[in-house]
């Protein structure tokens, strides 16, 4: 048991270190700008007085490491500073949007993960059949589609007839069932984008094992193909499958940006895109840090889970 805990602690430490370096990059990227940040945001016509006032407001007159530490400790306590565009505290802007984005990502994950695992197992079972080839070609095609193309096709096919709303407008008063209904199209878009990859990798991971002697043995004993795959192949294919699922859930985090814009969904992605256009960099930094943290956390979880799925790694002598 202790082996597992030290392993988890090690990974957690590594993840924290990664996050720390990422926060350095996200903060330090603004320092990369040649010349003065205040001047470049205010434009050429700004008077020296406005630039000086703006610099004070941003705290640019302090040395970089002081600003970084202030920012980092603020962020750890949930205080990301104030937005440049509308002077509101960033934590207020983020609070409800973070919940909305997580809801959408979890909704898409709840549909896509079971769906792609089932399709992957079926494709491995009926490999090289018409079903397998059709699913494969479909998967290859859907990987190649830009998210907004999938989104607009869904709007065209499903929202046109009034079946589902083309805009996912939600607020704090929207009930759970209503939320599910209104965000169905964005969730379906994300599902279509990530399912293909997960399905292909599930199929590949299982088929890779089917040539092993122990699978041959199981087959010779007369076990049904479905049982061979589910009971004998799947447990050993878990590690690569978990990795690819985590990779795609991480992809959902970035995929959500485009989809939120298409469906006018009040989430973090939309906030980020708006802020990039306004060059409201404190907001962009805050959102980037949250996205990066989620990304690192998912990869960490996948790492731990795939190790746990392998008894040879857990009970190492």
């Amino acid at each position: 048991m202790s082996v597992i805990w030290t392993m988890i602690a090690k990974r957690l430490g590594l993840g924290l270190l990664t996050l720390f370096i990422i926060s350095l990059i996200i903060f330090g990227a603004t320092e990369l700008l040649p010349g003065d940040l205040a001047k470049s945001i205010l434009g050429q016509s700004a008077t020296p007085e406005t630039v000086a006032a703006f610099r004070r407001e941003l705290g640019l007159d302090l040395p970089a490491h002081t600003r970084y530490l202030n920012w980092l400790f603020g962020a750890l306590q949930g205080d990301f500073g104030t937005s440049l565009a509308n002077k509101r505290p960033i934590s207020d802007l983020i609070a409800t949007r973070l919940g909305n984005t997580l809801f959408l990502a979890l909704y898409a994950a709840a549909i896509s993960v079971p769906l792609s695992l089932t399709l992957g197992v079926l494709a491995a079972l009926y490999r090289n059949s018409i079903f397998d080839r059709a699913v494969n070609a479909l998967a290859l095609t859907s990987i190649s589609f830009p998210e907004f193309f999938v989104a607009y096709i869904l709007i065209f096919v499903l929202a046109q007839s009034g079946l589902f709303p083309s805009m996912a407008q939600v607020d704090a008063r929207t009930g759970f069932a209503e939320m599910l209904y209104r965000t169905f199209l964005p969730a379906l878009t994300l599902t279509l984008v990530v399912t293909a990859h997960m399905m292909r990798m599930t199929r590949a991971a299982i088929i890779n094992l089917l040539a092993s002697p122990y699978i041959e043995m199981a087959r010779l004993k007369g076990i049904k193909p479905m049982r061979v795959i589910l009971r004998h192949a799947l447990p050993n294919a878990l590690a690569p499958i978990i990795t690819v699922v985590a990779l795609n859930l991480a992809y959902l985090i970035t995929g959500v940006v485009v989809v939120e814009v298409v469906f006018v969904y009040p989430g973090l992605g939309q906030l980020m895109v708006d802020s990039v256009a306004k060059r409201d960099f404190p907001v962009v930094q805050a959102v980037a840090l949250i996205f990066a943290a989620a990304y690192v956390l998912l990869n960490l979880t996948a790492d731990v889970l795939s190790t746990l799925s392998n008894p040879r790694l857990v009970h190492r002598k």
């Binding site: 370096i21 990227a29 970035t254 962009v284 930094q285 980037a288 996205f291 990066a292 990304y295």
Partner: peptide, 13 residues
């Protein structure tokens, strides 16, 4: 370790 689109948005800001 930083998601590509998020990193690109940060740099473009």
């Amino acid at each position: 370790a930083i998601p590509a689109l998020v990193f690109a948005l940060l740099l473009l800001t």
